[in-house]
């Protein structure tokens, strides 16, 4: 899938936009940071984690990183800190901790 370069979109004129407000690249919201909404972040205790993957299937923001059937990380660019993962974790392996001042840079 070709990357759609929108770096100069604020300068485009009518006909420079793709026809009819079409977005010609799929899933490019991956570049949009919603992590800045967060007031608390999930922290996973890998000792307690049973790799049941409930957090992954219940995440509204597709923000649980799974590699080879195992949870490895959170996508903090997208995680809004809702805490569903922590609430649903059957092993109580996820804790929500205050975000403090270390917010990711919002693009």
């Amino acid at each position: 899938m070709a990357k759609w370069d929108i770096s100069r979109i604020d300068e485009w004129k009518g006909d420079e936009f793709p026809l009819g407000a079409c977005i010609p690249e799929s899933g490019n919201s991956r570049e949009y940071v919603t992590g800045g909404w967060r007031s608390q972040r999930p922290v996973r205790d890998s000792e307690k984690c049973t790799q049941c993957l409930i957090c992954w299937i219940m995440c509204p923001d597709s923000a649980i990183v799974v590699v080879d059937e195992k949870v490895t990380d959170f996508k903090l660019d997208h995680c809004k800190g809702c805490g569903v993962c922590a609430n649903e974790c059957p092993a109580d392996a996820i804790t929500m901790v205050p975000e403090g001042c270390e917010l990711p840079e919002v693009k």
Partner: peptide, 29 residues
């Protein structure tokens, strides 16, 4: 669930639904 992780997650993050939205959970599943 393990098998499902091999399928493509067709909804990317970075959308602007509220935190904890049930709709995006429904779509992903």
């Amino acid at each position: 669930l393990k098998e499902l992780t091999h399928r493509e997650d067709r909804l990317e993050g970075g959308h602007r639904l509220c935190a904890g939205c049930g709709a995006s959970i429904a779509v992903r599943q």
